[in-house]
Design a protein around this nucleic acid. Structure first.
Lengths: 145, 145
DNA sequence: CTACATTGCGCAATGC
DNA sequence: CGCATTGCGCAATGTA
């Protein structure tokens, strides 16, 4: 999958790239439409409608906010992935338990079957007026599993 | 969740937004592969075989590639989310089945317990040399059902 | 090499 | 007001 990410500076506390993060990528709508003729469109109307400041990308305030948000995003995504992984693990865990339970059921069912057969046999003996066979079990009480 | 305001990107075929950071996004490193800080490997000056050209952001070729990739990304992410959801569903499904199995085990166990008790009782009667209780089935008579 | 798929990342809107 | 989430686009990388 990829180890990539090298355009980045530092993970945790990183360099204070105030601006011009040569880092390769800069999202700078601010100026330049890359100009070659392409554009004609003036960039955002110099509307500072929202706040008195258009949020200068150069502003320290801005960069700081961005940095913080980037951290938060990373954290959130990490958490998200962790949760997903946990869920997968949970599935495996449940599948295992399921198998265990099914095995147990199989065992119990078999045990029941044996006991029921014994009862039937006994019933038949009684029906046929056959006295308790001494050749059979007497005090055998093995509850063998 | 957020329904967010779509800043652009028409579904399917989108407008040719040459560049209009209206929404505010425009990634313009301008050019220069310069690998700064995180750059990792200094850019091998010798080879720029890949895309010798800086790939003009205005290029139709570029925009087309971008658009296609954006589609692919969306698709991939959707798929990813779908899978995650399926996994969650799987968990619930397994939990349900687990409960079902446990209930069954409980039932079987109880049944077994009853039968075993009957056996024990019978065994005791034999051991105590006690003939079949008259209050129950007698040696003769009906064969029960 | 081309085309699509994945993934890390930053941005901005929005949720809390 | 600040962090947390989330949709989105970009670019690098992986895969066919």
């Amino acid at each position: 999958m990829s180890k990539i990410a090298q355009q980045n500076s530092a993970p945790g506390i990183s360099v204070i790239h105030t601006q011009a993060p040569a880092g390769g990528l800069q999202q700078v709508p601010q100026l330049v439409p890359a100009g070659p003729g392409g554009g004609g469109k003036a960039v955002a109307p110099s509307k500072q409608s929202k706040k008195s400041s258009p949020m200068d990308r150069n502003s320290d305030e801005y960069r700081q906010r961005r940095e913080r948000n980037n951290m938060a995003v990373k954290k959130s995504r990490l958490k998200s992935k962790q949760k997903a992984q946990d869920t997968l693990q949970r599935v495996n865990q449940l599948k295992e338990e399921n198998e265990r339970l099914e095995a147990k059921i199989k065992l119990l069912t078999k045990e029941l079957s044996v006991l029921k057969d014994l009862f039937l046999e006994h019933a038949h003996n009684l029906a046929d007026n056959v006295p308790p066979p001494s050749t059979e079990n007497t005090t055998s009480d093995n509850a063998g599993q």
